[in-house]
Nucleic acid binder design. Structure first.
Lengths: 359, 359
DNA sequence: ATGAAAGCGCTAACAA
DNA sequence: TTGTTAGCGCTTTCAT
């Protein structure tokens, strides 16, 4: 008779609760609760007794139940975009590690540019998260209002909504733009092109405006700066540079400013592989972010590093995770300067720090 | 008198619950609950009345509270590693989108190779997640046991623990290795080198073993295949190729097999920029994953694509999110074949599908 | 179709 | 220090 091999199945056991542990340890249920909470009045003796019972039963406290009473979930919502820019991958990972180290977790929400971010936000609110970090996404004022009204702090990371009452932590993009302009000028560049991201992206806008401002101060007329726009991705950079180079009669600009490294990579690949150009001999390049890829052999980008650790520290500070009662400050803006990373896409050596500081 | 500008503060309002909505709508609290749950006995009339009241009060159901009773949180834990390999970034994003589309969210846990994964797992269990996906991380048998005992399914994604009772969804790595070996052989390669990942990584092991097996069948002795090992990252690829090329007297091998694209990128960058070699003229290259970077101008990698969508579909199927009562099958293994993506790192054209199918 | 009431597993007064 | 008790906001029988 055929004996078919059936898959083994795991049979779920009834849940072990703090009552079971209490019974086994011979104490009350509230003692169990105390045993598992930091700084609470309980003798080391009974705590150990309880831990042992818990271990025997494989008991793990149910944090869903505890958040119901404490009104704290230890969960932070992170609303992210498409992760096509490695900077946001780094950010996600860094946030996750930092939060996990202090006993919190990230609940991930994705919101593409075409998604209804308000609908995503309604989902976020369902989870009674302790805080919300928004990046690469737009949010209506109504939604930030709903969040604040519930006592949930919300921080825009590297992005702000002018006129909004939500706080923002970001790299000082305009300052970085000025620094790169200065570097290019000192390296002797006279003519310039720019690759910008989407117009509504505040990061792109600010970097460009700082860059253009510094050039204007040096006598370069803004209308003389060629500009191509694209999505803030590798492919966006590819398309933008093609717009600039295709059927070109005019001489090449001396320098190309890209609003981020990933677009610069796309642009450089096209320039070197499709047009046979050399960087920085034929054209200098400068950009923004210092993603890990920027230091690789084919790129060696001179760039402004986004001070990720400091930005995260500041974000966590503004979130007031440890003293939720303190209320939510509104409309804070925290621009953090990013260091210049000097590599090979601008000839010569970096201006000294003192010079850059006076910009 | 000085009037210091103080930051505005948001004042948290008392929470709006289903009772408040019920009161405003003039119905019972349980009706409110029904109104917000799919397929439940409630007249369209009262449902609308309730929705209107909810809207007026900005009511959002508290899913923490609901998971307490339903024992379902609609949260899936995803345990990930360092995200240095873009493949896992793609995976994370794809999982997040797929789950979000069906009303579930990802709770992210990071576990570095040196972290105590069991401690991470205990944290996971606290959250009463509906399922666990593990990737780039190891787990002890005891932990998978704890999870199964609680009725929480756990799937290893692209990774398996031999002898474990947890199920696994993965690319058919050995088959892919065989295909690439065949491609290289047909392109005329006679001598081979390999860049492998960490020894304990099952993906690396399986890809290598499929590759070597096919070569052996064609008369290439395994001991004649040069091998360098490294971390499965870009830098790992850089270091591995340097081991192979530094102070090299022997002629170059005809072909280089890398266990993934990101290592292949590191290796190619060193070969082209530091050693002036051309691919595939001086050496052919083949690898695995088909990350977005593989198609970029400097690489144009011929590679096996990880069938991400199919892998995710299979993972979600095994998770049985929609019928939790059905029990957890143990020890399933789901290898999914990945298509060959033919680009420029092997000369000539791809073997036809029929040939590859007979491998 | 609707309402009343009993939990889900935990925390936090309050009492002892 | 420990135990008792009343919720947290919801779902789900069970009546009506």
């Amino acid at each position: 008779m055929d004996q078919v091999t059936r898959p083994k199945h795991a049979v779920p056991q009834p849940r072990v609760t703090s009552f079971d542990v209490a019974a086994l340890a011979g104490v009350s249920q509230s003692s169990v609760s105390r045993a598992f909470s930091k700084r609470s009045n309980i003798s080391e003796d009974t705590r150990q007794k309880i831990f042992e019972a818990a271990r025997k039963l494989n008991y793990v406290p149910n944090s869903i139940a505890s958040s119901l009473t404490t009104r704290r979930s230890n969960i932070i919502a992170l609303i992210i975009g498409d992760l096509k820019n490695p900077f946001y991958v780094r950010m996600l990972h860094a946030f996750s590690e930092r939060l996990q180290a202090e006993g919190r977790q990230i609940l991930a929400f994705t919101a593409g540019p075409d998604d209804d971010t308000d609908a995503v936000m309604m989902r976020v609110l369902q989870y009674q998260v302790d805080g919300i970090i928004v990046t690469q996404a737009r949010l209506s004022m109504r939604m930030t209002g709903l969040s604040h009204e519930r006592g949930i702090p919300i921080i825009f990371f590297n992005r702000y909504v002018p006129g909004s009452d939500a706080s923002c932590v970001r790299c000082d993009n305009a300052a970085g733009g000025r620094v790169l302009a200065e570097c290019l000028l000192r390296a002797g560049a006279k003519s310039f092109a720019m690759i910008a991201g989407e117009a509504r992206a505040t990061t792109s806008h600010d970097r460009i405006s700082g860059f253009v401002e510094r050039l204007r101060e040096s006598g370069v007329r803004p209308q003389d700066i060629e500009t191509a726009e694209g999505f803030s991705t590798y492919d966006g950079g590819v398309i933008a540079i093609q717009k600039l180079l295709k059927d070109r009669k005019a001489p090449l600009p001396d320098a190309l400013f890209c609003i981020n490294d990933i677009m610069a990579m796309g642009a450089m690949d096209v320039m070197t592989h499709s047009y046979g150009l050399s960087v920085p001999t034929d054209i200098m390049v400068a950009s923004f972010d210092n993603i890990p890829e920027s230091g690789r052999l084919p790129y060696q980008l001179t760039t402004i590093e986004q001070p990720l650790d400091a930005m995260i520290t500041e974000t966590l500070k503004l979130l007031h995770l440890d003293d939720p009662g303190s209320g939510i400050e509104l409309g804070l803006d925290r621009p953090i300067p990013g260091p210049l990373i000097w590599r090979a896409t601008i000839p010569g050596s970096a201006p000294d720090a003192a010079t850059l500081a006076t910009l």
